[in-house]
């Protein structure tokens, strides 16, 4: 191909583009969005707002099952309910890749520290949907000697979905609500509630603590399950 021809080609192309421009905007630019924003094809927004919208529109869930509620959670991911439709349906196996954790089930004393660790491993910003009565208050097992009275004893929750178990529709509603809140830039402050690590010295010096104190170094951190003080 000679250089002559090519320049002719280019010229023609430039011309036709110019013509198009003269005739007003290309159809391709006439999107719904453009209509909504008026004549200017630009959207001005704050970067934070934009990021919030992005976050809310595509959420990676942690694949995290605890108890009966996780069966309904799986049903929510699976066909018929298909949480993916709402931009929130990719279960990630590793907490390091996830930004939402759905807590689906009863939390017991042995599991609570492990769940805290999983939560800690998730990168910021992170969100928590607590699913089912068990994660609200201990649910049907509230009186159990071994049951933590709600997820909020361990990690902060953004949305509670009540039910035993909540129907998939309810969970979808909860997740959609969470997305809405994230898009609006609202979410619960990340603070760790009562179930936090305490200095050993903070504990009341009751008999048991005295007994244990002999074996534990003063500097040691302890976790404490005190059922009596739980709501």
């Amino acid at each position: 191909m000679s250089s002559q021809e090519r320049s002719a080609d280019t010229e023609a192309a430039v011309q036709s583009t110019q013509e198009d421009r003269m005739q007003g905007a290309d159809d391709r630019f006439n999107s719904k969005l453009r209509e909504a924003f008026g004549s200017s094809p630009f959207i001005l927004t704050k970067f934070d707002q934009f990021m919030n919208w992005v976050r809310g529109s595509s959420m990676f869930m942690l694949q995290f099952g605890i108890a009966c509620c996780s069966i309904e959670m799986m049903a929510t991911y699976a066909i018929k309910h298909d949480l993916d439709r709402f931009g929130a349906g990719i279960p990630r196996a590793s907490p390091r890749q996830a930004d939402v954790i759905i807590v689906p089930g009863t939390i017991v004393s042995k599991f609570a520290p492990r769940m805290k660790r999983v939560y800690d491993q998730m990168p910021e910003p992170k969100f928590v949907v607590s699913m089912g009565s068990c994660t609200i208050s201990g649910g049907p097992f509230q009186k159990g000697y071994n049951v933590v009275k709600g997820a909020e004893e361990v990690i902060p929750c953004d949305i509670h979905v009540p039910g035993c178990p909540p129907r998939p529709e309810a969970l979808i509603y909860g997740v959609a609500k969470l997305q809405e809140r994230i898009a609006n830039g609202e979410s619960s402050p990340v603070t760790v509630k009562p179930y936090e690590l305490k200095q050993f010295g903070d504990l009341e010096q009751d008999e048991l603590v005295d007994h244990l104190a002999q074996d534990i170094d003063e500097e040691t951190l302890v976790m404490r399950y005190n059922w009596a003080d739980s709501p």
């Binding site: 004393s109 042995k110 520290p113 048991l208 534990i216 951190l221 399950y225 059922w227």
Partner: peptide
């Protein structure tokens, strides 16, 4: 087998006090 190693007492026994705090050292986790 079911409860954490550090649990105090046997909860299905008759004299178990459910309100006693259970203390777990951070090292064990």
């Amino acid at each position: 087998i079911l409860l954490p190693e550090t649990w105090q007492g046997h909860p299905m026994g008759m004299d178990y006090n459910q309100d006693q705090p259970q203390v777990v050292t951070f090292e064990s986790h």
